[in-house]
Write a protein that binds this DNA or RNA. Structure first.
Length: 295
DNA sequence: AGTAGAACCTGAGCGC
DNA sequence: TGCGCTCAGGTTCTAC
């Protein structure tokens, strides 16, 4: 469910409660999520202090004081919520609502900061793992990840090189985490729309077959669109963060305004375009785009 | 080598 | 009300 901007929003929301705080206690309520929890997961975390909270692609990385990293992935439906310790739900008449709200709470961290951090994940596509800091970049989860979509590592020349000769559709190439790490279905659709590029265009046609001195305009447009759409979504998440924390403590979901995603049959939002948003299926995933202004 | 499809799992929404 | 079907923002494995 969450893409990179949502994960970054979660990271920012968790940081004040989790970073520089000790895990006084942890409840692990089932043996596995997508994968089994590591051996003695709870015992290894109990008493540890989180020295920093980072992110790589869609992975949350909690650095621990013993040199290990608690790696957390939200899968499709994972979320965290933060509550003050001892702030229990109203009993009695509201019992039903309470039990509904806490279904699928799989892991609960009791932090020395006085907060309770609960991981909830109905579909259980998420997971948690413990990896020594020194082994992280060579670990199977991380060694094949491509560049982050924001920051200066992603540029038009990189994208042209990575896509050169590829026949696979642009949509699929952008979802390939080995090239750009962190883009998901929504923001790929949005970035392609902003750059006026068709999701079905072969990735290799982003530029000429032979390397040129300067990257082509399509690659430039796409890189700018990717950076913009991700940066705007992170900003939107940040601005919604305060509201969420103050209401029910849940993190990770916020209101988006998409230009194409989930807007099948609705008018294209490109200024001056009279097209209609269309939905197609590419490698089993929905793609939303405007056939009129995306070429 | 690259790609489509299935798999993992639960819930929401919709037509009947 | 309920049943059956489709779909969901991720990742990884298998089969062509």
């Amino acid at each position: 469910m969450p893409e990179l901007p949502e994960v970054e929003t979660v990271r920012r929301g968790l940081e004040p409660a989790m970073s520089a705080a000790r895990i006084d206690d942890i409840e692990v309520r089932r043996p596995d999520l997508r994968f089994p929890f590591p051996m003695a997961f709870g015992a290894r975390l109990r008493g540890r202090t989180v020295v920093g909270l980072g992110r790589r692609a869609k992975y949350l990385l909690a650095d621990l004081d013993d040199g290990e990293v608690l790696v957390m992935h939200l899968g499709m439906s994972g979320s965290f919520r933060i509550e003050a310790e001892g702030d229990e739900a109203t009993p009695g008449a509201f019992h039903h609502a309470r039990s509904k709200a806490t279904a699928h709470d799989h892991v609960v961290f009791h932090m020395s900061s006085g907060t309770r951090i609960t991981y909830n994940d109905p579909r259980r596509f998420g997971f948690m793992s413990l990896i020594p800091r020194a082994e992280l970049t060579e670990h199977a989860l991380f060694r094949n990840l491509g560049v982050e979509p924001v920051g200066n590592t992603l540029d038009a020349a990189y994208l042209e090189t990575a896509f050169r000769g590829k026949v696979t559709p642009l949509k699929a190439a952008l979802l390939d985490q080995r090239i750009i790490a962190g883009l998901g279905n929504i923001y790929v659709c949005e970035a392609l729309h902003r750059s006026g590029l068709s999701p079905t265009r072969p990735a290799g046609t982003l530029s000429s077959a032979r390397p040129r001195k300067k990257p082509g305009p399509r690659a430039e447009r796409l890189v700018v669109a990717i950076r913009d759409v991700i940066a705007e979504a992170i900003a939107a998440g940040g601005s919604s963060l305060r509201d969420y924390v103050h209401t029910d403590g849940s993190l990770g979901y916020f209101q988006h305004t998409f230009r194409v995603y989930d807007r099948e049959g609705e008018p294209c939002r490109t200024p001056g375009c009279t097209g209609t948003v269309r939905r197609i299926v590419q490698s089993g995933r929905s793609t939303f785009y405007c056939p009129r202004c995306q070429r």
